[in-house]
Design a protein around this nucleic acid. Structure first.
Lengths: 123, 123
DNA sequence: AGACGATTTCGACAGCTTGTAGAAGTCAAG
DNA sequence: CTTGACTTCTACAAGCTGTCGAAATCGTCT
């Protein structure tokens, strides 16, 4: 897959949280609002990051509208699942890892996991 | 955590697979044997990588013996679990991620997951 | 003690990624 | 056709990783 830098990650978070595609200017403003650190990035910086994210296959751009609009290709959850599988892929004994992993999740999560497993059992 | 490069990863794999701590020369030989590509790395290369892994907190070195001996700090599984939690940590709705994740694992793994959950249920 | 071989430490450098942006090109509207 | 917004191109500094050579060190053999 592709690991994300801090800024790339922030941009993806904004895109994931937005129902509509966003423009580079939207993102610049949102990023400034986020940090509240008065540190406005140059628009070109945002555009560069967006271009890189596009190359990585994480965002797609609408070139039809004049200020191009950018949207995430897949949901945040799907992306995270990809990361999980990537991490698991490097382990030969997936089950041993899963066992340890289960030990670390909360009771609530364990309960919902059980529920999920049950609902999938039919398949 | 710390992501690993290809060589760093190979070294960690060897250390994880070894019951005994290994020396840089052991590792150089093992690496050459692995690739079978006749490409022997310089020992200093291996030492550099080991120093970096030590700095990252992944391996510990015995300075008491003359050829220093290196061993992994934690098991491969624990490391992988760390990666999983790191990936999950960036997601707000862990359960949505877990749900999608379950959909992608094999039936066997689902079965063992169920078993693990059951065995942990008592806690 | 002195020399020698094995080991380790200290830079060093190239290539890739990420953050950051200026300069220049392009496009639509007036 | 001029202007202002938007995009593309190019660039550069840091940091990470692979890869070593040169130099310092350490144990040992004579």
């Amino acid at each position: 897959m592709a690991s994300l830098g801090d800024l790339e990650r922030s941009v993806m978070d904004l895109l994931w949280d937005s129902a509509e595609p966003l423009t580079a200017n939207d993102l610049r403003d949102d990023l400034a609002a986020l940090g509240a650190d008065a540190k406005e990035l140059a628009v070109t910086t945002v555009l560069t990051v967006l271009a890189r994210l596009e190359k990585k296959g994480l965002v797609e751009r609408e070139r039809s509208t004049r200020p191009h609009r950018y949207a995430a290709c897949s949901s945040r959850e799907d992306h995270t699942v990809g990361l999980l599988n990537e991490a698991l892929g490097t382990a030969q004994d997936r089950e041993a890892v899963l066992a340890r992993f289960i030990g670390g999740i909360t009771a609530d999560e364990a309960a919902s996991l059980r529920a999920i497993l049950d609902s999938v059992k039919s398949a």
